[in-house]
Design a protein around this nucleic acid. Sequence first.
DNA 1: CCGGAAGTCAAGCGAGTGTTTTAATCAAGC
DNA 2: GCTTGATTAAAACACTCGCTTGACTTCCGG
Lengths: 265, 265
Amino acid sequence: MDQIAKAKRHRASAGTPGERARTRILDTAEALFANEGPAAVTLRSIAAAADVNVAAVNYYFGSKDKLFEEMFVRRIVPLNEERLARLAACVDVADGAPTLVDIVTAYVIPALQLTDVANDSARAIVVQYSLGRVLATPEVNQMLARYYARVREAFVAALQRAVPHLAPHEVVWRYYWMGGSVMVALAVPPGMIEAPDLAAAVVEPTPRGTMPANLIAFLVQGIRAASSVGTDLPDSAATTARPGGQGRGVGIAHVDFARGGDVGL
Amino acid sequence: MDQIAKAKRHRASAGTPGERARTRILDTAEALFANEGPAAVTLRSIAAAADVNVAAVNYYFGSKDKLFEEMFVRRIVPLNEERLARLAACVDVADGAPTLVDIVTAYVIPALQLTDVANDSARAIVVQYSLGRVLATPEVNQMLARYYARVREAFVAALQRAVPHLAPHEVVWRYYWMGGSVMVALAVPPGMIEAPDLAAAVVEPTPRGTMPANLIAFLVQGIRAASSVGTDLPDSAATTARPGGQGRGVGIAHVDFARGGDVGL
DNA sequence: CCGGAAGTCAAGCGAGTGTTTTAATCAAGC
DNA sequence: GCTTGATTAAAACACTCGCTTGACTTCCGG
């Protein structure tokens, strides 16, 4: 209460002592969360790192859960707002029907901006919470769903116009798969591609800045793929991997796959 | 020690009392893990649900971490073994060079078999641990990396032969993105597509058994997509957005991307 | 029957957790 | 200076956690 006094203090020092302690707690908790993982973020570790008393966290945030939610909201809301803004901009410019490239770009780029080293804490927060959505408690899961619902609805609607040859439920699946790919792209820490355990597979590191375009190409072609493989895939398979024009690439997998949904995979 | 006595007991009752308690603990812990999440799996909750004493868990598994590892290994090792076996089968049948469809199918199908309701606990274990890899402690992460290393090496090598137009580092990225998509497909619980919060976007549920084929189509087309030539992604997309007079979204997408790498994406 | 291993059990330890309480400190307003 | 409200600090509270101990029961080979 007493908004006036609070405002006065705020105006006085561009952040009252309380305000500064609050953001210091938030920043410290985020850094701990990003570097050590959620389990390592205890009130006492926060207090020690932020140089405040343990009671301060409950004083400013009410509870540890509230602190965690605020920590997440601070990062995920701007991300999703930018996604929606970019999508809306595409709609305006393109006169109502953004292309698939536009849509995918609007979804991917805001996320991949977090791969900048300057945003590493934010990246970790987004990754851990968004991936953690799958393994979180129902309450946390519902909270996360709230923050993602608008984005999902907007992008699924746009995608359904961009790829009308797909059934609506197929579009929803591909939206989720896009999210999975983006999350993995976001989760791989900078430099992991050149990590020792990958040395056998990679001879040269990924050139800086080329990954986003590659991811967009991957997603665009994947999303627009026909749902029935019978039309597109034999062609693509032949053009890519059959230099000798040998017999068709029939394996166990291909046989299973050719029978489609009948086998109940 | 005393393998003889152990074997005798084992032979006697098709599982000694200890053996049966052991597997009961394992099954119970897995069910708790799948239904309530990792945080809810305490020694006391396991003991209560499995109708054993808390000391029994440490008696049989040595520690909680060992129990968790065994729980994970029991599910992930057969999964990855089947992936490798399917990949090897493709190589044999196709005489050295499996197609991209073969490779993707060999990777995807074993995982999606876990979406059967009968495998729901196994599905949850695989999802939670494999997604949790990103947010786990370094020790757990190293354990998980051990179990995935062979699969990754084999599939990346196969993919590099199947899509030789991509640079090795690009193939590695696409392998990871494939893993992200599969994990999301695996993480969505049965029936979630028709969940209330998705009702606005989906008018009809996904027909049973059609999802794997769709996912494979998505991945095959995505993986074989040409890499971009430049890194200036948003503008080229916007400028190529309107092919005059076409009017159909599918046409837009098709026109833009039928030319492969030429358009820059 | 008996010795001893295998298995079970209640009780408790020590460390850690989030949270609350109580009192002290600080900075302005009258 | 005194009052008042906003902070901060120290201590304790009320748990839960993984794990251990030591006694107890079961069961089988000899």
